[in-house]
Design a protein around this nucleic acid. Structure first.
Lengths: 109, 109
DNA sequence: TTTATACATCGCAATATTACGATAATAAAT
DNA sequence: ATTTATTATCGTAATATTGCGATGTATAAA
């Protein structure tokens, strides 16, 4: 026990849930907002901006990179991260599909 | 360690992340979809529909109730769950605010 | 070549989540 | 009053996540 039973759910359900999971941490939300607001690549200003250790930030960046929502390019001795617009839009669309479905009023509640 | 440092993030970041977290499990996504598709209250058809134990479903329902996205009404010896439209819309708006912001093209990537 | 800087990765401790059996609580049915 | 059905809650084992120090790697600077 303690192991999510992915096999009993649809691919769509698993995919949506794992997207939500990546965003389900305030540090990762903060990182995305920071990258967007800077409108530019950043390296580890994040370590100073947020109050987390370098190893921790690096780990969060990795998770964001895994779903492709951000991209890193090596620039000299630092790495420049930025939003991948295509992936961002795809995720946005997935969420909209989920959330913008009609929710009919139910009988009982 | 191993404890999320909520205090270093903004309320908005923490709120968004915790909303995402509730949806970050395929069972909870499945439960929401099922309730929506039935367009009606359900009780624990869910236990049969999904292949999870009654205790597990009940726990997931509790988490969904905690953020208010679903509501339960006692109906005889069963409980009827349905989407709370107002909360659904509020969460939808929060996500849209986050996702529908302009993502400018960055310099480096 | 040595040193410094910026990141990534490893390993670990603390904490959280997931799942479920057992049991309690409640209401309908007998 | 007893039994049955439906749900909630408790306790616990298995697993996952979070955070960080230590260490490795690669590039730039000296």
């Amino acid at each position: 026990m303690g192991l999510t039973k992915s096999e009993i759910f649809t691919d769509e359900q698993n995919r949506l849930a794992s997207l939500f999971k990546v965003l389900a941490h305030p540090a990762r939300v903060a990182i995305l907002q920071y990258i967007i607001n800077q409108k530019a690549c950043i390296c580890n200003d994040l370590v100073e901006e947020l109050g987390l250790a370098q190893a921790t930030i690096s780990q969060h960046l990795k998770e964001l990179k895994n779903i492709g929502i951000i991209q890193g390019t090596i620039e000299g001795k630092s790495v420049c991260y930025c939003i991948d617009e295509n992936v961002w839009k795809k995720i946005q669309t997935d969420f909209n599909t989920f959330f913008n479905q009609e929710v009919k009023v139910n009988k009982c509640c």
